[in-house]
Design a binder for these strands. Structure first.
Length: 503
RNA sequence: UCCUCGGUAGCUCAAUGGUAGAGCGUCUGGCUGUUAACCAGAAUGUUGUAGGUUCGAGCCCUACCCGAGGAGCCA
């Protein structure tokens, strides 16, 4: 094997190269051949391009005919605009080199099940949909870091291994640390508060580990979180930064990833509707809203919309069924059966959704003050707004010990969660921290916490304590929201889920 | 931990308790513009595991394993 050329062009740059001869390095995504012409669908790290070889070029044509899916290739040819090509440009191949022949690539260009794809995650990453998500994830992280960097924050790397006896210890992963049991970090916050007292505006960005046995579309056992911590912050400061951060992430995605969002089938208008100020309710107002006629009506309308949707799908099922009965060609039948399966799947999901909402709407309407919101409450609240929704001032019993007590109503803490629209749930959780030593110790006693492992944390309240606060934004839930994904497993290259550790 | 659904060819799925099948992928041949191309032909199985019921089990029963969705908890 030898490579034809030392320099190569990337597919994303092809539109500027019309009329020129270029060299492309990539992989064969798909292929169609006939007797005198071969269409190669070639991908590289930046996109997909259709390339053609005619039989008048016997050497490359022979290679093209024998290529298998995901074989790595290098090709040289002339770029030209062609409306018949999926990307609008096409390459006429003059030379083609096989770099490596892939034998029996397991992921075909047909539909696959979740289990199969997850077991082949290392290869699934090559799919157009997955590369689109990973590119957007990159931009979201870059935007988030850019936002804080531009606002004068300093990045602080907090430890991943932390000593025992942290709050909520049941949800931590234990690690054997030279015979001592320590835990994987579930937040960088306490350490970040130390750095906040040194540098005032700081943030950390790193992996976070939760050992909860959650099996839902919103949970990973290992996920990434970006957490700012701000000296002299009040709740409005936190909301201001949460808004700025969110707008920057959405803006950068809309600026750079229109094509990727289209690949994902994302409804871009929902993202464009996000403007400041975001909707904001206190916890008590949110509970009132849950109990209101407005919510009751909204639930009814939502159920009616789902019923309508189900009727539409049933109608589509009937039409497809008739087409299937009339179809004679085997491949046509197969396609219709595939459509039928997809429609049935959608209908089943809808039916489950409907059932779920019917059984839970009563719980939501009779939600009692003092509990934490569950997924259903969050969904019903957030879907009534086009922007993300802040909920502030939760009952202190359901929140962490470090959150500042609200002196105007001691039942509450000064905190804020941000719920993403379209039912994506909580993407940000944050609070003003309790900076008064006595109040913090009192709260720790109430929680029956051993203060010894926290003496260093209490020191922050002994030496120049100041009002401060911060929040954490979950990257994967944000990616899911911005990309319009049903499940967080596609938002991270190698998701760690309950019962899943391969690859 | 609990609830619901599922496990049949490499993949996606069919199969009244009665001879295990289709499409895709693969291989062979054909086709000058395809868009998950198409046409013709070929190969393909320990039906998740272990028991049980039955003349006969992919299908029924029991236990277990694995997966999916959800609850709780959370970002």
């Amino acid at each position: 094997m030898h490579l034809v050329s030392m320099t190569s062009t990337r597919i994303v740059e092809l539109k500027q190269q019309c009329g020129n001869s270029v060299t492309l390095r990539g992989w064969l995504h798909g292929k169609r051949t006939s007797g005198k012409i071969a269409f190669l669908i070639v991908r590289d790290g930046t996109g997909i391009c259709q390339c053609i070889v005619e039989a008048s070029h016997p050497e490359p044509f022979a290679i093209a005919e024998s290529l298998t899916q995901e074989s790595s290739i290098e090709l040289t040819g002339t770029v030209r605009e062609d409306a018949r090509s999926p990307g609008g440009v096409e390459i006429d191949i003059s030379a083609l080199t096989l770099v490596h022949r892939a034998e029996d690539y397991p992921i075909s260009r047909k539909s696959h099940g979740v289990d199969f794809l997850m077991n082949h995650r290392h290869l699934w990453l090559r799919a157009p949909r997955q590369t689109a998500i990973l590119r957007i994830r990159h931009t979201l992280i870059k935007a988030a870091r850019g936002y804080f960097d531009d606002a004068g924050f300093t990045l602080i790397d907090t430890p991943i291994l932390s000593p025992g006896a942290a709050e909520g210890a049941g949800t931590l992963f234990p690690v054997d640390y030279f015979g001592e049991e320590v835990y994987l970090a579930q937040t960088g916050q306490l350490y970040l508060e130390s750095a906040c007292m040194a540098l005032e505006k700081v943030y950390c960005f790193g992996p976070t580990f939760r050992a909860e046995k959650s099996k839902t579309r919103r949970h990973l056992t290992e996920f990434w979180m970006i957490e700012p911590e701000i000296a002299y912050a009040d709740l409005d400061t936190l909301k201001h930064h949460a808004e700025g951060l969110t707008l920057r992430m959405i803006g950068d995605t809309l600026t750079h990833h229109r094509d990727d969002l289209a690949t994902l089938g994302r409804d871009v208008s929902a993202l464009e509707k996000v403007t400041v100020p975001f909707a904001s309710l206190t916890y008590s107002e949110a509970v009132d809203l849950l109990h209101s006629a407005q919510t009751r009506d909204w639930i009814e309308q939502d159920l009616a919309a789902l019923e309508t949707r189900r009727a539409e799908i049933d109608a589509a099922l009937a039409v497809t069924g008739e087409e299937l009965a009339a179809a004679t060609k085997a491949w046509k039948k197969e396609k219709l059966e595939q459509t039928l399966r997809e429609l049935k799947e959608t209908r089943d999901e809808l039916a489950i959704d409907l059932e779920h909402r019917r059984t839970h709407q009563q719980d939501v309407l009779s939600f009692s003050w003092g509990k934490d919101f569950g997924g259903d409450e969050e969904t019903i609240l957030s879907r009534q707004f086009d922007t993300p929704l802040f909920v502030t001032g939760y009952p202190r019993e359901v929140k962490a010990f470090y959150m500042k007590r609200d002196d105007t109503d001691p039942r509450l803490v000064v905190n804020m969660d941000m719920l993403a629209p379209e039912g994506y749930g909580e993407v940000i959780g944050g609070s003003i921290r309790e900076e008064r030593l006595e109040v913090l110790q009192e709260r720790m006693n109430e929680e029956k916490m051993d203060s010894a492992p926290y003496e260093w944390y209490l020191d922050l309240r002994r030496y120049g304590s100041i009002p401060h606060g911060g929040f954490g934004l979950g990257i994967e839930r944000t990616v899911a929201w911005i990309c319009g994904l049903k499940h967080v497993r596609e938002t991270i290259p190698f998701p760690r889920l309950l019962g899943r550790m391969y690859p």
